[in-house]
């Protein structure tokens, strides 16, 4: 141990004098992208989240083949079954990528190696976007295999009932979902609080507004305009009409864009301790 220490120390000692060194080049953005992507999956929690996605997607596909009635054995069903676990779990990856800088205090290192928080946050956002898109591509591919295998096992006709426009809408919905996680991470900057926030936002709130809409007709009319979960959820089902795009824009502004802007401001300004 001591001999290796000495030799390394010696090598350090014969480096050129500091004054003679050229100034380093600025950190390029693609390097940050690579590092931030790696950080999303190189922790124990990151590994478990990935494992749980693979596992549930597998279980979902098998369950569809084994349990679903023959008439719903279509491409749409398979993509939905494979995609659902990803859509639910991947936003947590985006969320934790922001909160862990504070909760695990890695921000002390991250923001001293890159003292421009905006660049780090931008790299994380691009990663969240990329992961959302890749998730849909993967779901579409695995769903296609499931469809072919499942249908041949069940002995029914192949049904490719999911066109490019639907897949594009699903991709947008998935990316928006990623940014819900990302937004909650920026806004709360605490893993525990943001996770609770995520489940309330995605599940509790969805149930409550559905109940309210069922009980109160005035809210049922208003819901698509004020309930982002609802207007965003529609993207998984249909290619939106002009009105549905408008509903997505209005509800999304209040439930995603505005809190995202507030969260961004907090992250850029708050102290890292």
């Amino acid at each position: 141990m001591s001999t290796t220490t000495l030799t390394t120390a010696h090598r350090e000692a014969v480096r050129p004098a500091y004054d003679a060194r050229p100034a380093p080049t600025p950190t390029p953005f693609h390097r940050l992208l690579g590092v931030e992507l790696r950080k999303m999956f190189d922790t124990r929690s990151g590994a478990w989240l990935m494992a749980s996605i693979v596992l549930t997607a597998l279980v979902a596909t098998v369950a569809v083949v084994a349990l679903a009635p023959a008439q719903v054995l279509t491409y749409d069903t398979f993509v939905a079954a494979v995609g659902l676990p990803m859509v639910t779990i991947l936003p947590i990856v985006a969320l934790l990528s922001v909160t862990s800088e504070w909760s695990q205090r890695t921000g002390l290192t991250t923001f001293t190696l890159v003292p421009h928080r905006g660049r780090v946050v931008a790299a994380k956002a691009v990663c969240a976007l990329g992961i959302g898109v890749i998730a849909v591509v993967l779901a579409a591919a695995i769903g296609a295999v499931g469809n072919v295998v499942g249908v041949s096992l069940a002995g029914v006709d192949l049904a490719w009932d999911l066109g490019a426009a639907r897949l594009a809408a699903i991709t947008l919905a998935t990316v928006l979902n990623m940014f819900i996680g990302f937004m909650l991470g920026l806004l709360l900057r605490s893993s525990a609080a943001a996770l609770v926030g995520y489940f309330v936002y995605q599940f509790v709130l969805t149930g409550l507004t559905a109940l309210l809409a069922a009980a109160q007709p005035w809210f049922a009319d208003l819901q698509p305009w004020v309930d982002f979960n609802f207007s965003q959820g529609q993207l998984f089902e249909v290619v939106p009409s002009a009105e549905q795009w408008a509903q997505l824009g209005v509800s999304g502004f209040f439930w995603l864009v505005l809190p995202l802007a507030v969260g961004l401001r907090l992250v850029l300004r708050s102290e890292v301790k």
Partner: peptide, 14 residues
């Protein structure tokens, strides 16, 4: 250019 160590415990436990 600058090596910084502010808190050795501030690392991701995982």
């Amino acid at each position: 250019e600058v090596g910084v160590l502010l808190d050795a415990s501030a690392q991701h436990a995982g």
